[in-house]
Design a protein around this nucleic acid. Structure first.
Lengths: 182, 182
DNA sequence: CGAGCGCTTGATTGAGTTCAAAAATCGTGG
DNA sequence: CCACGATTTTTGAACTCAATCAAGCGCTCG
């Protein structure tokens, strides 16, 4: 409604579908993020690196997940994350100019608020988990949030998401396995 | 622009300034949140209670902070937080009907997105802190985020915000004090 | 003014880390 | 397709930070 064909056409170049090989960096720490990503197929993740050189996974993004360094895009500040492909991944790349352009459209605003509110709910849930849970509870929570992903992601990255060491995760899994088939 | 006096008048009853005594509950766990709060003077906090009955402070809200159970308001689901006054507090109470009404106004949308994006940045920073920091680093981070608040909030609540026990916080503070005046 | 709440301190315990090394798996070039 | 080097996972042992348990102190507010 109210959008001309010419307008739509001018927007098309701002949305691209790309295929990134495994280990590609879609965004590097310190850069200014100009894109957001929607995963069609494959797997991305974002992580930060702390003062001690330790990597902390912020988020995994398998099929149908959206991933973005929102603060860098919105506030125009240097990114504090890296976004990397963990598998060969087909991604819808949404240019910042695109969102700027459509930011006046009511339909976009609704979607955008939903996306932001959902993001907040996720982050909040994660904070609650980090505050209360044991290593085992964290791992079970991870499995619930990302069904099937534990088979696709190396364990040391899952450990990094949970905020524990790979050794601890290995022991947690062993313990769970022993408890289950008995 | 485009807003009539009559419109404005109809909105007035939806924003109220109220004074809550210490220990008042502005929102209880399980309720459906219908309001958001802006603190003029005093101090509020929100917290969740986990399965083991332990209380986790989500956020403090001293002067000029905004506090809300966004997920409950937006998704119309039962609140998972409690919001409580830690001091006698003067609050701008914003009824959900108000935000619903003005949600079409461009000026509101801008403010709202800024607020959501800022919220996300805060939550993200907190997650990074919880993933990496020691008890001492967490406490120092708390002091940076809420300057002066450590004198107004009971220590056991600060501990709850940091995800450590009151005893540990007591020892951290002792250690910091000894290290500083020497 | 005293009962309860919050803070401190001490002793002990325990979950998870660290360090080290072996075992398993992956992936890449010949 | 196999083999070899690299990466990842597992396992073990010692250690560490913070939690727990317990007791005593001091404040405040009812």
């Amino acid at each position: 409604m109210g959008v001309t064909d010419a307008e739509l056409e001018s927007l098309l170049p701002l949305i691209k579908i790309k295929v990134y090989p495994k280990k590609t960096f879609l965004l590097r720490d310190g850069e200014l993020a100009k894109n957001s990503f929607y995963v069609e197929k494959g797997l991305l993740c974002s992580y930060s690196v702390d003062g001690k050189g330790k990597q902390h996974i912020i988020q995994f993004a398998p099929e149908d997940w959206f991933i973005s360094e929102r603060s860098s895009v919105y506030f125009k500040i240097a990114s504090r994350f890296t976004i990397e492909a963990l598998e060969e991944t087909t991604v819808v790349v949404i240019d910042k100019e695109y969102t700027d352009y459509v930011s006046g459209w009511p339909a976009y605003q609704e979607k955008n608020e939903l996306s932001l509110q959902t993001h907040i709910r996720h982050l909040q849930a994660r904070i609650n988990m980090l505050l209360g849970a044991t290593a085992e509870e964290k791992y079970l929570e991870f499995i619930r949030l990302y069904p099937g992903l534990y088979q696709r992601v190396p364990q040391w990255r899952i450990a990094s998401y949970l905020g524990i060491t790979p050794e601890s995760l290995s022991r947690v899994r062993k313990e769970l396995a022993e408890r289950s088939h008995r």
